[in-house]
Amino acid sequence: MRFRAKIVDLACLNHFSRVINTIAKLAKTCTLRLTVNKLYFILSDRVANGGVSMWCELCQGNFFDEFQMEGVAADHNEIYLELMPENLSRALKTAQNAKAVKIKLTNKHSPCLKVAVELPSLSSSSRIVTHDIPVRVIPRRLWNDFREPVVPDFDVSIYLPVLKTMKSIVERMKNLSNYIVIEANLSGEMNLKIETDVVSVTTHFKDLGNPPWASEDGCQSSAQGRDLQSMAEVRIDIKKLQQLLVGQQVNPTKALCNIVSKRIAHFILLHEDVSLQYFIPALA
């Protein structure tokens, strides 16, 4: 098992650290899956996570100048590691003007992801900062726990409004209630609602548009033949939604939400080469 990667380009480095910062805001610990072409940050839906799960996928070629990996076996050419993304985020935070950042899997005393940052200095030699981030290697028999989630059989899929706007609304609503209801229909309308004993607040969005899912594969059946005006709704923990809106730093070019009535809200943020999926379960 080997892994070694290097980022030289500053723009790539900053982009990478923004992705990591986003992950760090969403998950305390997560799984990093390394394959020859891609990196995945995975949070599987355990009760401990409040049923929330996450799947973030990036193409290594868009970030790294060098990327060598050798998985556990030739026919399972992958590596699964458990780590605290906060550590990685911290290590990259002070690497903003680095000449190069190398990331390497080591096992000196215990398995570590070694992040070596080469910084410019006033002297002839550069300053080298290394961070040993402890990781746990996940054995192959557990890999099945980290399979890519299938896009749920949703009732409504809708593009989200500008996330900043949504963020400021949700932040205000959070002061009033612990739960938020998201409802949307196939005519591009979405409502964010809170309902308490003393107050009901609803924010209406219209003309958001509905992504054309059906053309990709025919199996998204629930949305087909659905009344365009009827709302599908899901009631979720407002803190989880706020976490996503506050934490995201990927500035997605596309953001959408799939709603399975009374079961789950599935968010997808897309930014060029990065895709982030976030699942928030419905509350009764």
Binding site: R90, S123, S125, I133
Partner: peptide, 9 residues
């Protein structure tokens, strides 16, 4: 815990 190390010339 994460261990950070830094060397200065």
């Amino acid at each position: 815990a994460m261990v950070t190390e830094l060397w200065l010339a």
